[in-house]
C-alpha cells in the first residue's frame, strides 16, 4: 500500500493543460499542408507525381488541390517541391464536417461546425462512442486509446468509449473498411439507437488511405454509413481527434 502511494506521488499530475493552455506538439510534427501559390511553378506536377495516394491534383493552369482526407502526411510532396512552395505546417486542427471541406485549395480549412438543435442538446455534454476497427492498422486505435489515459482524460469532457453499440450514441470508425468487416460494421451501426453520430478517424476511414481502390476494401466508412465528422491523419495526432470531437460538441470556444 505504501509502495503504491509512493509511486502515485512520484508519478505526479500528468494531464495536459489543453484545452485551456496551448497544446504541445513535436517540432517536426507534420500538420496541415500549406501551398504558397506565389512560389508554385506553373505546369510543375512534382508534388502530385510523388504522392502515394494521388491526393494532389493540378487543375487548369495554376490551380492546385490537395485532398486532406487521402493525405498520409508522409511529406514526400514537400520534399519533391524544389520551389519550396509546399510545406507542412504545425496546424493540428484539421477535422471537418463534410468530405468536401477537406479539399484543400484555399489557405485554411473551414472551422468544424458544432452540432445544432436537438443533437446538441442530446450529445453536447455527454457522448458515448463505440469504436469499430475495420481494417485499421492499430495506430489510429492506439492514439484513440491514448485519449482515455490520464494525459488527455477524455472523461472530463463527458466523452466515453463504451463496450456495446446499444449503449452508444455513435460509432468511431477506423480502417479502410475491409469487405470482411462490411457486415459487422453495418450490424454495429444498426444496433446504435437513433439519433446517432459517425466519426471517421484517419486517412483509411475517410478514403481508404494507402489501401484506396483495393478491391479488398470499401475506401472508407462513407461507403456504408453517413459520416458526421472526418479526422485526417495517418494516424491523426490525439490532439487532432480531441479537437475535432470538442468542436463537434460545441465545447471548444477558442478559434
Amino acid at each position: 500500500m505504501l509502495n503504491i502511494l509512493r509511486a502515485r506521488i512520484r508519478q505526479g499530475h500528468r494531464t495536459v493543460a489543453y484545452p485551456r493552455g496551448e497544446p504541445i506538439l513535436p517540432d517536426r510534427f507534420r500538420g496541415c499542408p500549406h501551398r504558397e501559390a506565389g512560389l508554385c511553378k506553373t505546369g510543375c506536377k512534382a508534388c502530385a507525381e510523388v504522392c502515394p495516394t494521388d491526393c494532389i491534383r493540378r487543375t487548369g493552369r495554376d490551380g492546385w488541390q490537395l485532398d486532406l482526407g487521402r493525405c498520409l502526411f508522409c511529406g514526400a510532396c514537400a520534399q519533391a517541391c524544389t520551389a519550396g512552395a509546399l510545406t507542412f505546417t504545425r496546424e493540428y486542427r484539421m477535422a471537418a464536417r463534410t468530405r468536401n471541406a477537406l479539399q484543400l485549395d484555399r489557405d485554411s480549412l473551414p472551422p468544424v461546425e458544432a452540432l445544432r438543435g436537438a443533437m446538441q442538446n442530446i450529445f453536447g455534454r455527454s457522448l458515448k462512442l463505440r469504436q469499430v476497427s475495420a481494417g485499421g492498422c492499430n495506430a489510429c486505435e492506439a492514439d484513440i486509446n491514448v485519449l482515455g489515459t490520464v494525459v488527455y482524460d477524455l472523461g472530463r469532457f463527458g466523452i466515453q468509449f463504451v463496450a456495446s453499440p446499444r449503449h452508444a450514441d455513435g460509432l468511431l470508425i477506423t480502417g479502410p473498411v475491409t469487405r470482411a468487416m462490411e457486415l459487422a460494421l453495418k450490424k454495429t451501426w444498426a444496433a446504435v439507437p437513433e439519433p446517432r453520430l459517425v466519426i471517421a478517424v484517419g486517412a483509411c476511414a475517410i478514403a481508404g488511405g494507402p489501401y484506396c481502390d483495393h478491391p479488398e476494401t470499401l475506401n472508407g466508412a462513407g461507403a456504408l454509413v453517413p459520416v458526421d465528422l472526418f479526422v485526417p491523419g495517418c494516424p491523426p495526432h490525439p490532439l487532432t481527434i480531441l479537437d475535432g470531437l470538442l468542436r463537434l460538441l460545441g465545447r471548444l470556444k477558442r478559434p
Binding site: 508519478q11 500528468r14 513535436p26 517540432d27 517536426r28 510534427f29 507534420r30 498520409l72 502526411f73 508522409c74 511529406g75 495506430a139 492506439a142 492514439d143 486509446n145 491514448v146 482515455g148 489515459t149 490520464v150 494525459v151 495517418c234 494516424p235 495526432h237
Partner: peptide, 22 residues
Amino acid sequence: GRIRGDFLNLTALLCGNRFGRG
C-alpha cells in the same frame, strides 16, 4: 498508459510522428 505515450513522443521527437511514419 501515460508512460507509453512518453516513449511514442520520443519517436515523434525524432521524426514528427509518434509511430515513426516517414
